[in-house]
Simulated assay, not measured.
Amino acid sequence: MKMCKVCRKKPRVERRVDSAGNVFCSNECFEKFEDGPDDFSHPYIDDYDMLRIAYIDWMQNYEGDLHKSIYFGYPKKSDLLEWLDETMDPYWDYYGLAGSDGIFSEEIFFYIKELLGLQETIREWQVDERKYRKWLKELRAKQLAAKALKD
């Protein structure tokens, strides 16, 4: 795996690429890099940015959403799976290209494959009592902090 062009960290969920194939660990490192190409005129940049943002959101929040489904009864697994389908729906043409039309096409293909894997994870998900208790503790702390701000 390529390391971040700026800080040399291993890119994770928030990774980003430019049209020259440079890899960055985050938007911050991407913005610090001064010798990069002008990606804003690339035909796939908007689709890449939109799906990248959606991907980050899903990967950071899906487990919390599943815990909410246990605690609040909503959203249900079926809702999450439907929303995930809606997230991927505009990008199926890129899936057909299998990443063969440049770096952004390749990245979009990667994100779709990851989101398809996430669908399987959600389908098979079972509550882990330890993680659920941790999530409840964090939820209660947020609720208490919000209440303290009101008072």
Score class of each variant (00 low, 15 high):
Met1Thr: 15
Cys7His: 11
Lys9Arg: 15
Lys9Ser: 15
Asp18Lys: 02
Ala20Met: 12
Val23Pro: 00
Cys25Leu: 05
Cys25Gln: 04
Asn27Cys: 09
Asn27Phe: 11
Phe30Cys: 06
Glu31Asp: 12
Phe33Val: 15
Glu34Asn: 14
Glu34Leu: 15
Glu34Val: 14
Glu34Asp: 13
Gly36Arg: 08
Pro37Tyr: 15
Pro37Val: 10
Asp38Thr: 09
Asp38Leu: 10
Phe40Met: 12
Ser41Arg: 14
His42Arg: 06
Pro43Arg: 07
Ile45Trp: 05
Asp47Phe: 09
Asp49Pro: 03
Arg52His: 08
Ala54Ile: 02
Ile56Cys: 06
Asn61Met: 04
Ile70Arg: 11
Tyr71Cys: 11
Tyr71Phe: 14
Pro75Phe: 03
Lys77Tyr: 05
Ser78Val: 12
Asp79Gln: 14
Thr87Arg: 00
Asp89His: 13
Tyr91Pro: 02
Tyr95Gln: 08
Gly99Ile: 05
Ile103Glu: 14
Ser105Met: 05
Ile112Ala: 01
Ile112Glu: 00
Thr121Cys: 04
Thr121Lys: 10
Thr121Met: 04
Arg123Phe: 05
Arg123Glu: 08
Glu124Cys: 07
Trp125Glu: 02
Val127Met: 11
Tyr132Met: 03
Lys134Cys: 04
Leu136Arg: 09
Leu139Thr: 10
Leu139Val: 09
Arg140Gln: 08
Ala141Met: 06
Ala141Asn: 07
Lys147Arg: 09
Asp151Pro: 10
